[in-house]
Design a protein around this nucleic acid. Structure first.
Lengths: 199, 199, 199, 199
DNA sequence: GATGAATGAGTCTTCATTCAT
DNA sequence: GATGAATGAAGACTCATTCAT
């Protein structure tokens, strides 16, 4: 990556600005200023304002998926994989606050105003979870009645809402590792006390 | 509700328009048209465009909370309460598609552009869940190490992501009751097979 | 026509501004100022800047055609009709300097940037001339070898160039009636001296 | 002319681009692309965009005048000169479609946005016609009451409108020589039948 | 209370021109 | 001389909001 890579400078600036103001309340001139380029320069690298947002989704989510997949692949036990996924997700949010906020807030919004845009990357991310479930079911570790299509959303949703709370709140009440363990424990063991389950 | 209650006509129209286009891509003139009133009339009932959105959040979420609280109060067993909550949430989304979409998409966005706006109603809704947990812990049904502040977000997040999927997709893959049972089962029993847990 | 007919006020203002600056160098804000309305008001009456120009062509040329046709119809002799046409054309240019300039300069240009636009009105205007020729040929007054399709363009072109000279020059060298007589005489009698023609 | 004469390459490219899009809708980058040079290179040969247009007028009309004057000088009879002028004019338009279109469309427009620009070349071209008339009047061939200042415009206008029709239409209805003969005949003999004139 | 025509501030985008390489 | 990436001024157009009727 060159020091003066304008494409990257603009993307980084846009993530900061979008995170702070939201897509619709962000001005091209603000992004340009934040990136230390002229307004017009942005249009040498992107077709329009939406294109910047799309590019953020595509490129940045792509990087995250690659990283998570790589880490998960190192682990065998599906239980550990799930726990690791939770940790990695929350850690990534923690380390990329602005990006996380943009993705959480704008990816929802964007599905509305860019009908042609289908986020395959996001679906790919969710499928990491469902693959872990199927592997666990094949190995006789997870219940057969667990529906992977529901589980992946429930698990992701739990992590997402947790991290949303973090992104929006100024101070952290819980540590990442604590939250990751709690949430994966909910899904693995449930919250009922063991004696009760025996019944 | 009077037939000519303009306030309500405008709110209902705004929910439809916001759900379809998103807040920023919705025009006051569209809402006025949808509500069969003049553009200027809207300003007799609301201060500005944002005010319509805020009012939707306040009034409509308020109604939902009242309904859910009432239903939950009829049940004693915290396990049943949790399952009932899941069902009610998904059922409400099912029955109020447009409202659900507006809340899901715009409530996130809005926290950004209306800094002064703190959604107490939403916090109140989440606290229904944490109260169930605390009740269950007091009764010795739920584990003591479950942190209600994390659980409420995880549980809500799971339901929210599930319903988001519904709102955006045209056809339903799963029935509400199926999804509600699966998700509450995840959280109550976990997904590990019982024999494995005994270990 | 109401005193406050915005449509007309804008059209009149646009004719003045376009005549002075040319279409491309005219600003919407200038037209608005000239018409004593807000910039946005223009867009309540016209779709865009081009639409104003098109409307000028359509409406104003329409009025001119109606007037010329009416005047010509009063005359029987095709020779007098031709002379009258020349006079009316030059007189109309004289009395509507700005409009004449806009039509002369922009109608040519516009055919390029508005491909979809075909000026039927203008063709209709030219056909007044060719109809006079055909009438004269039927009456045995004009030569049979005169091709109306060529003549109408040659006659109009002669008048148009003459009037263009007027529009652009600050002072008039010739009177309208003088020029009209000369030009129609050229076409009727030619410029050769009679004795020479006998040969 | 050198193969790499950038000045000429740019002029030729600009004529093509201006003819197709019009001056205001042409982009410097398009001309550069058409000329196979970099955008910046154009500014080594021309001061600005207008300067390219002016240069086209000056240089190209200059060449045409030289050619026409040379041809006309070979002829003695003013009647033949006029007919020859008509033929040459239409033939030149025929052979230089793009240039003709640029001159016809943009020369009118340009007088507006380049106030300082007075087209002496064009006046010189028109004066070829008035000189023919004066010569004919001195030789007792043309009527004394013909005003050369009006005639030159009428004659040029007739040819110009005829050729404009050609430039804009895709297919030719009349041959150049036919049109040239018709138009010069109009002006020499008029369109009245001889017997009628005798009266 | 209701209307909707009018307002004008605000922003994305374009593109002629520059200048470091 | 040649390049083309970068600049930033400028303008068409939108739309929330107002207010005379």
């Amino acid at each position: 990556m060159k020091v003066t890579d304008k494409h990257d400078k603009i993307i980084k600036a846009a993530i900061r600005v979008f995170a702070k103001k939201g897509f619709f309340n962000s001005r091209i001139s603000e992004i340009a200023k934040e990136a230390n380029v002229a307004d017009g320069t942005i249009y040498l690298y992107f077709n329009n304002k939406y294109d910047i947002l799309i590019t953020i989704f595509e490129e940045e989510i792509g990087k995250i998926i690659a990283k998570v997949k790589q880490e998960i692949a190192k682990i065998d036990d599906p239980r550990k994989k799930l726990e690791r996924f939770a940790y990695l997700h929350l850690r990534l949010v923690e380390d990329n606050r602005d990006l996380a906020e943009v993705i959480q807030v704008e990816l929802r919004q964007s599905s509305k105003f860019m009908k042609e845009y289908r986020n395959k990357k996001f679906a790919e991310y969710l499928n990491i979870i469902s693959q872990i479930i199927r592997q666990g079911q094949n190995q006789g570790i997870f219940r057969q009645d667990v529906m992977p299509g529901i589980f992946k959303r429930a698990f992701f949703g739990a992590l997402d809402e947790m991290s949303r709370f973090w992104v929006l709140s100024t101070r952290k009440k819980y540590r990442v590792s604590t939250a990751a363990k709690q949430i994966s424990k909910f899904f693995l063991d449930g919250i009922l006390i063991p004696e009760l389950k025996a019944n």
